[in-house]
């Protein structure tokens, strides 16, 4: 695998992706099994459900120096726990509107719905998101995080 162009030394970025266990994590896993190329700057954190996401998690990730945060769950209507992602949708939408006010570019934050079979959609999404973050460059930090 060619890693020279993905390990962007000069413009190193970190992306945190919170993926729900039942759909999006499966999707990312399927993409891996299918040997679809995925950007290495992404750190995936598996979570039980997108409804489990406390808006403070993405905020903490930014606070700790993440340059982009992506949250993905089951499609609305397909939640493993019936309605977790409905709640998540509202919370994350509010957070998306709130971030720019605190000085965080809203393009650095995204939420989406990816099912376990949508390996290609996952690949397309994460590649495009990573490219976007790469364009934006490293996030402004309160202090240098080592």
């Amino acid at each position: 695998m060619d890693i020279s162009n993905t390990l962007d030394q000069k413009n190193g970025i970190k992306i945190v992706a919170f993926l729900c266990n039942w759909c999006s994590y499966g999707g990312a896993d399927a993409a891996g099994t299918a040997r679809l190329k995925q950007p290495p700057q992404v750190r995936i954190i598996r979570i039980p459900c997108s409804g489990w996401i406390n808006p403070l998690y993405p905020l903490k990730a930014f606070n700790e120096g993440a340059d982009g945060v992506l949250i993905s769950g089951c499609h609305p209507g397909d939640c493993h726990y019936a309605e977790g992602n409905y709640y998540a949708r509202r919370r994350l939408e509010v957070l998306g509107h709130f971030l720019p006010f605190m000085g965080i570019d809203p393009q650095r934050f995204r939420y989406s719905w990816i099912s376990a079979t949508e390996a290609q959609e996952w690949q397309a999404l994460i590649t495009e998101f990573t490219e976007k973050i790469r364009e934006l460059g490293p996030i402004k930090k309160h202090v240098e995080v080592s």
């Binding site: 971030l99 720019p100 006010f101 605190m102 000085g103 965080i104 570019d105 809203p106 309160h142």
Partner: peptide
């Protein structure tokens, strides 16, 4: 809110 996110970041910092 008329300020850019980067300016707002500095404001809040």
């Amino acid at each position: 809110e008329q300020k850019e996110p980067a300016e707002l970041f500095d404001f809040w910092t």
